[in-house]
Amino acid sequence: MHVKARRCVSVLVTLSLGGLLTACGSFNSATRSLANSITPYKVDVVQGNFVSQEQVAALQPGMSRQQVREVLGTPLVTSVFHTDRWDYVFTLKRAGLEPQTRKLAVFFTGEQFDRAEGDEMPSEADFVASLGKKMDKIKVPPLEATEAQLARYPVKKSAEAEPAPEVPVAPVAQSYPPLDAPAR
């Protein structure tokens, strides 16, 4: 009986595998288009330091390295071989959009800021506006109510019209227990 049960299980497994293989080959174009329309969620990837147009405008020749760091933040790249150059790189990758990359190189003469070169930076307002989700698909209904609809909800009286009830106040303690533990 044990051998017979084992043979039944092996036949059942073989038939199941055969059924699965034939099911894999029976995808038609409608099933494939459905499978292609389902896409995984892709995370927005933000790397580096965002530097705005306003921050670049705040840089003045002769500023110290610390002052530049306070305005722009810590540089993404500093090189041992180019100690007079800091590089700020910002990359934003979003699903369905081209990646945004902005680069700025800051040059020093000794310990003093000399100049900045790189891409044209967006203003903070422009950058924030570019991050906004497209809300074109969402239709907001008009928020209007007729007088009949408003009459169904009576206006509550304000708290100022009614005097507040008197609440008894506990007397303030005149002496407090000592903070130190009693001596032994």
Rank of each mutant, 00 (worst) to 15 (best):
Y176W: 10
D87F: 01
V71C: 03
S175G: 02
P177D: 02
S10V: 10
A35N: 07
G19A: 13
H82T: 07
Q60K: 15
R65A: 11
D126S: 15
T83V: 09
F27R: 03
Y176R: 08
L59G: 03
S37H: 08
V43Q: 13
R94T: 08
Q149W: 01
L72R: 04
L97E: 12
R65E: 14
D44H: 09
Q67I: 09
S175F: 14
R32I: 15
E70Y: 01
Q60N: 11
P122Q: 09
A183R: 12
Q66I: 10
Q60R: 15
E70V: 02
T14K: 07
T39N: 13
T101H: 10
V9F: 12
S10M: 10
P171L: 09
D84V: 05
A30I: 03
R152N: 13
K4G: 04
E117A: 07
D126G: 13
V77A: 03
P165W: 12
H82F: 11
D136K: 04
S79F: 04
R152C: 06
R115Y: 01
T109S: 08
A23F: 04
S52H: 09
A95L: 03
F50L: 14
T31L: 11
A181W: 13
G48D: 08
M121N: 07
V3E: 10
R94K: 12
E54I: 06
D84C: 08
P182K: 05
G25H: 00
A35C: 05
G19V: 05
T91M: 04
P168W: 13
S158W: 04
E147F: 07
K139A: 08
S123H: 10
Q66L: 14
L17S: 13
V45R: 14
F27I: 01
V89T: 11
D180E: 13
D119G: 08
L59M: 05
I38A: 14
I38F: 12
Y41K: 13
N36H: 04
A159H: 03
A145D: 00
F81D: 14
E166K: 14
V89Y: 01
R7D: 09
P168Y: 12
A57D: 11
L72D: 03
T109K: 08
T31S: 13
P182L: 05
Q47S: 10
Y88T: 05
L72N: 04
L92A: 06
K156C: 02
L104Y: 06
Q67M: 11
M63W: 09
P177E: 02
V11Q: 10
S16L: 15
A164S: 14
M121K: 09
A5P: 00
T74F: 02
S16Q: 08
V140K: 07
F90T: 05
T78L: 04
S26Q: 10
N28M: 00
F108P: 02
L76F: 05
P168H: 14
L34M: 08
P163Y: 14
P122F: 08
P154M: 06
P40G: 15
A58E: 15
L97D: 12
E162I: 15
V89D: 07
L12P: 00
L76M: 11
G118E: 13
A173F: 06
G118C: 10
W86K: 02
G73D: 04
E160A: 10
Q55K: 12
V80K: 07
L92D: 02
Q174V: 09
M121G: 07
C24P: 00
V43D: 11
G62F: 13
G110V: 03
S79L: 08
P177N: 01
E70G: 03
Y176F: 13
W86C: 04
S37M: 07
E70A: 08
E166D: 15
